[in-house]
Amino acid sequence: MKNEWPLWEVFIRGQHGLSHRHFGSLHAPDAEMAIKNARDVYTRRNEGVSIWVVEAVNVSASSPEDKGAFYEPSNSKVYRHPTFFDIPDEVGSM
């Protein structure tokens, strides 16, 4: 539909000190209303202390077809996980 409001992606910070996380998406005529709509749709149970909105057309995403070239090569590289080191006890929890 031509008259639909643009789609916005909503990111909410749950508490101070945490990072914003993607919560969902909604429609709104402009950024200001998108923030208000996000407030009403996603924070009515006290879920957040800060809201970011990004118009969905401005999000660049990796393509599902690239999945092989993008992600499979790292499957076999277990040595990239730092699990082969013995951590001295005196270091404590990491």
């Binding site: 429609h27 709509n37 749709v41």
Partner: peptide
């Protein structure tokens, strides 16, 4: 008319 307004009005 739209979901977002519906929720906002209910709030």
């Amino acid at each position: 008319p739209v979901l977002e307004e519906d929720i906002a009005l209910a709030n």
